[in-house]
């Protein structure tokens, strides 16, 4: 059972922003959905077949990219050719 403080904590981790007034609704829906996810516990008791995964690498070849102007075009705040972000500290 997930409590309101858990949802608040996850919202903090995800930087999603959460109003106090929304917590009860989100928590109730969360529990209903997680309860449904419980089917994952019951369904597969025997070991599933494993598929080995492997990576395929491409050659590291330099290629063109967008111009600095294009990349910055959608930003609200820029400075000297950089994005301007909120303060880190």
């Amino acid at each position: 059972m997930i409590e309101e403080k858990d949802v608040e904590h996850i919202a903090e981790l995800a930087d999603i922003g959460m109003e106090r007034s929304e917590l009860a609704e989100f928590t109730a829906q969360f529990n209903e959905i997680l309860d449904y996810f419980g089917v994952l516990d019951q369904a597969w008791t025997e070991a599933s077949s494993e598929v080995e995964e492997y990576n395929i690498f491409r050659d590291d070849e330099p290629a063109g990219s967008l111009s600095q102007e294009d990349v910055l075009a959608n930003a609200k705040e820029t400075e000297d050719g950089f994005f301007r972000a909120p303060r880190v500290m």
């Binding site: 930087d15 959608n74 930003a75 609200k76 301007r84 972000a85 909120p86």
Partner: peptide, 19 residues
Amino acid sequence: GVRYGPGADPKKQWHEAFQ
């Protein structure tokens, strides 16, 4: 909001602005 979209207030703290 930093690279596209409505912008994030650069005067605010990182997490506060993003949230």
